[in-house]
């Protein structure tokens, strides 16, 4: 079975975040970057499937130079080879652009399964998986908390609201976005770290992928990033119920401007 796992690099959960001067991103200096949490679960799921079904696991990331570390970590844990999408024009892609880049990189490889974390710990919009599935014209399932191979089909357990689960089956090839907690990610052994040095990491640029500027121009732009100001303004409305309702409507219309 040929499995691709997409891993992404994000700031450590405990980081002390500071907003950058231009207020469109965070200050990356002094930050510690690590593998996105749900991506490490996706990687583990890929490795477990490879162990039980045979085949290979190819990890893929997109990002600046430093993001290469998440590929190395994945290779040390047992992935077979890596693809690194690296290009200045990949800076600040939106989910659509990212999906186009990953799709271009993965489309010719005939993967049976593409796995990635449900969402990233930085932006957290959980869009890449579904859009990428559309780009590649694959069936997909999100919020996966369990997988079972049934020959050329896969049965997955999806988490629903309120403690419910849903089991669905689909044909391979397919794409799954994995929820944290589905397994127990392994620790890289030294043997693995040493073996990692001999494994292939293939760099691909926008040109290699045949992407042009219009493919990569974001439809979605982050305009301003700021810490919501803390405003605490409590007013007590008094009087008979009718009067209170009237006052409330007035305030919601004129002060809060939500009606």
């Amino acid at each position: 079975m040929k499995i691709s796992v997409i891993v992404r690099q994000v700031p450590h959960q405990e980081s002390v975040l500071k907003i950058s001067k231009d207020e469109t991103w965070i200050d990356e200096e002094n930050l510690v970057f690590i593998t996105n949490e749900s991506d490490s679960y996706a990687l583990e799921e890929g490795l477990l499937l490879k162990e039980s079904q045979g085949g290979e696991v190819v990890v893929c990331t997109l990002g600046p130079e430093r993001a290469g570390q998440v590929l190395k970590d994945a290779l040390a844990k047992g992935a077979d080879r890596a693809i690194f999408l690296r290009d200045d024009s990949f800076d600040r892609l939106d989910s659509q652009g990212m999906a186009r880049a990953f799709a271009a990189a993965l489309k010719d490889e005939q993967f049976d399964l593409i796995l990635l974390g449900l969402q990233t710990d930085d932006i957290g919009n959980a869009q890449l998986g579904p859009i990428l599935a559309e780009e590649l014209d694959l069936p997909h399932a999100t919020l996966v908390v369990g997988t079972e191979m049934l020959g050329r089909r896969v049965k997955v357990k999806q988490e629903q609201e309120g403690g419910w689960f849903q089991h669905i089956e689909m044909d391979l090839p397919a794409l799954l976005t994995i929820q944290s907690g589905i397994n127990k990610p392994r620790y890289a052994s030294l043997r693995g770290i040493m073996a990692m040095k001999k494994k292939e990491i293939r760099d691909l640029t926008a040109a290699d992928l045949g992407l042009n500027t219009s493919d990569l121009t974001p439809d979605q732009v982050l305009v301003r990033l700021y810490v919501p100001p803390k405003i605490k303004d409590t007013a007590f409305l008094e009087g008979a119920p009718d009067e209170i309702v009237a006052q409330l409507v007035e305030k919601l219309t004129n002060e809060a401007k939500v009606l």
């Binding site: 844990k77 127990k184 392994r186 620790y187 052994s189 030294l190 043997r191």
Partner: peptide
């Protein structure tokens, strides 16, 4: 266990 097998105690990783 750790260097060869990559198996630290469960919570310790």
């Amino acid at each position: 266990l750790i260097l060869s097998e990559g198996k630290p105690p469960e919570d310790a990783a």
